[in-house]
Design a protein around this nucleic acid. Structure first.
Lengths: 206, 206
DNA sequence: ATTATCTATAGATCTATAGATAATGC
DNA sequence: ATTATCTATAGATCTATAGATAATGC
């Protein structure tokens, strides 16, 4: 169904810019090219549109994990041994995904705007964009760290610049410059703060 | 005028949680303990309340800069020579300010929710919370760095975790743990990534 | 025959004003 | 005397439904 998808895309775009409450169903309809009452043939309410966007993102996320062959749970991270180059490539992909992928970018903005309204939005924001990725990186770094705390500290130092870059992108920063900066950050991080290779050797010596 | 201040505080609290559009003037009035029409004796419109909050923050910010004796413009940063300990103390103060200071915390959330709606909100968000602080730190680090780019990269690595921590706080993280983590981050940063003292010596040798 | 759209509109809610009444300051 | 509040309400807007009409699929 073509209209159904267009309603999801256009309303997400509007929600991402103005927030759910500030967007009227008439506005959504106009963006789609129909009249407001026609929306109700596809969705039973305005809230239903919102929730369908959430569901779409959740299934899209599950697909992405499957396609990329990334460890899908935090527990599996410990098992997966990744090289610095693999982590770099994965990180650049994440930056690209949350900025230049239109659906992901708008969904991220939507969560940003809804995060203080409901526990559900807050926990999704957390899982996708803040505490979640930090935890994810901490699990990856854990085998190379002396303590949980050290792994978590390294994960924060590693991930926080990416988190900041999402916002710099929204503020108009050029994506190529951000990608360039992210690569430099990660190389510096592995050189000075947390050298996986060196730590791997230390681990073997013990 | 007591009611005036209460209207500002209560409406900021509501705007910070739900966003400007999702809050009705009746809701603000109820939080204040009056009826909606009474608001209009203090403010000429709902928008006027919003703009008065912005103005209050701008003057509060000017005061803070004056009180703390911080370099008030980016240009002055280069002149101000700061020690690692001074930077640590200032950073902890900033984290405390944007989380536990109720007005600043709510104002930050408000900007977070309004950032995609107007250029004005976006540029304030940028100046107070993302690109601004990075630029500020880059100016401080500049004398110790070989290039502008190196200073900027260091500033990003330094500041991004703070930026992330504001959000972790919103997600329910304990402020004392965050402060502890910030201190560890900064000490690690100065130890491994960008040691000011060592760089100071290098500078003198050249 | 079914599905998608439209016009018209009900009913709720929202911002803001008018005018009356109560509280406060000289 | 002035300022702050109240009730009542105008006028706009918003979500959603009812019922008619056009488009699509067997």
């Amino acid at each position: 169904m073509k209209t159904y998808e267009k309603i999801l895309a256009e309303s997400l775009k509007l929600f991402a810019e103005k927030g759910y409450d500030a967007v009227s169903v008439a506005e959504i309809a106009e963006a789609v090219g129909i009249k407001a009452p026609s929306l109700y043939k596809h969705f039973k309410s305005k809230r239903d549109i919102f929730e369908s966007i959430i569901k779409k993102m959740e299934s899209a996320d599950a697909e992405t994990v499957e396609e990329n062959g990334m460890p899908e749970s935090n527990e599996k991270c410990a098992e997966a041994v990744l090289t610095e180059e693999q982590i770099l490539a994965y990180s650049k992909e994440m930056l690209s995904y949350w900025t230049t992928n239109e659906f992901a970018c708008n969904f991220r903005k939507l969560l940003t705007l809804e995060q203080f309204k409901s526990d559900e939005a807050r926990s999704m924001y957390s899982a996708y964009l803040s505490a979640g990725p930090v935890q994810y990186m901490a699990e990856i770094f854990r085998p190379y760290a002396a303590t949980d705390e050290e792994a978590h500290l390294a994960a924060t130092a590693f991930y926080a610049p990416m988190f900041l870059m999402y916002n710099l992108y929204d503020g108009g920063a050029d994506i190529d410059e951000l990608q360039n900066k992210l690569e430099k950050h990660i190389r510096l991080f592995f050189k000075t703060t947390f050298p996986l290779d060196k730590k791997e050797n230390e681990k073997n010596e013990v």
